[in-house]
Design a protein around this nucleic acid. Structure first.
Lengths: 228, 228
DNA sequence: TAGATTGTTAATCGATTAACAATC
DNA sequence: TAGATTGTTAATCGATTAACAATC
């Protein structure tokens, strides 16, 4: 009910769910839905209505009794919470396959993050550009970050080089590191946020599920009901 | 103590942690460490010793009182649990930037997953190969999976095509889907394991942390103690 | 007003940590 | 045997769900 004070410090579990709300609200908005109840959203997202109300209330009362939530308003609140309109600037460190794939993907822009440059040690890559993003010499990284007010460093380089790159980003005063190297980064100062993407871990979790999951009844045809 | 019976059904939280054990044990092994106690591993991994003992005991007693754990033995048990030596075969559906980046990365092989082929609709890509992996016509996907005993399908294509690709993989009788499209896939039969990689969600979580994290004291120099 | 649905408190469930007896 | 460290039970903590009074 109180729109001015944050009710309760959001737990890590809640924070992790926020981007998912963002995605679904975006879609509802695209479908020109103007209003939604926690019960309906719960059905769509396959969670409980209780959880939705609890989650949203960490950040203030966005709904209205007897009515539900205004989709547009709720979406804009979630955007604010997630900093989508902060115009964060990012650099990619490591212009290999993954780095280039991220540079070419619309994902960063779609989430409100502007990619300024990529960095590499490879002289063959320096000077080139991908999707309009120049590849610069990694030696200039700290200086570049300082001068251009870079907020986020994206690590897509070989794991051995990750600690050094992290130190350079720190020197460049970035505020967050998105770490794709399958290393645990050395301890950063608490002013630098860290988010790890452990693709290998995710793959192994899938392998575990495959190995320990339900068996198919027949080897011949798929076990689904969907007509194939 | 009982090596033959699984003690307790491992919870999702435990399963998610297994690949991390795998990584650390691998490193210990590389450093020729032969033996480790839960207390020492806990220090290295920055968790509690209790958690390690609890986690491992879901799968059987791998340790020895008064001694600790044999690194090589524990590593091989974890590999077995995760199915590293099952020789799972995978295909990539969507030979765009991300798909190609995965094809070129050593990650799959390192985790015991063999990449057999990539699939795409783009005639300009079909027939080419990346890192020795051929790009085939997606129309042949279900048949190819059946004939080659493909276990895992990796979805790295535009989100709109994801549901259809998932259906083709189902028809091809794969046992798991690794989904990189930022969509929630339509409901699959329970015999197909699903693991989502929501890169966009991860990025937004980072943005949240950046926005709501601790502020640096000085704007000029990094707040760390590490000498830069 | 009556109906709907939130915000919020209380109850339940699951996961983590602490403690210690078993035992190598 | 004495010391160390596991396996396992019990206690704590956090997150989810249920319930309902507040209120639009």
């Amino acid at each position: 009910m109180n729109n001015f004070e944050i009710q309760k410090k959001p737990s890590p579990a809640v924070i992790k769910r926020l981007p998912r709300y963002y995605r679904y609200l975006r879609e509802l908005l695209a479908n020109e839905k103007t209003r939604i109840s926690s019960a309906e959203l719960a059905r769509i997202m396959n969670v409980t209505a209780s959880q939705i109300r609890q989650d949203l209330n960490c950040f203030g009362g966005f709904g209205q009794q007897g009515y539900g939530y205004n989709v547009e308003h709720l979406y804009s609140e979630i955007c604010n919470i997630l900093g989508v309109n902060e115009g964060y600037r990012a650099v990619i460190v490591g212009a290999g396959n993954l780095g280039r794939a991220l540079a070419r993907s619309p994902m960063l822009k779609r989430r409100g993050v502007r990619l300024a440059a990529m960095f590499d040690t490879d002289r063959a890559l320096i000077g080139r550009d991908y999707n309009g993003i120049p590849v610069l010499d990694v030696a200039t990284l700290p200086d570049y970050c300082q001068k251009n007010g870079i907020d986020i460093g994206i690590l897509t380089l070989p794991r051995e080089q990750a600690p050094n790159a992290a130190r350079m980003l720190e020197a460049g005063a970035v505020r967050g590191i998105w770490n794709f190297t399958s290393t645990e980064l050395p301890s950063l100062p608490p002013c630098i946020a860290l988010e790890n993407v452990h693709l290998g871990d995710s793959l192994m979790t899938l392998c575990y599920k495959v190995k320990n999951g339900k068996k198919r009844r027949s080897v011949r045809k798929p076990c689904a009901k969907s007509g194939v």
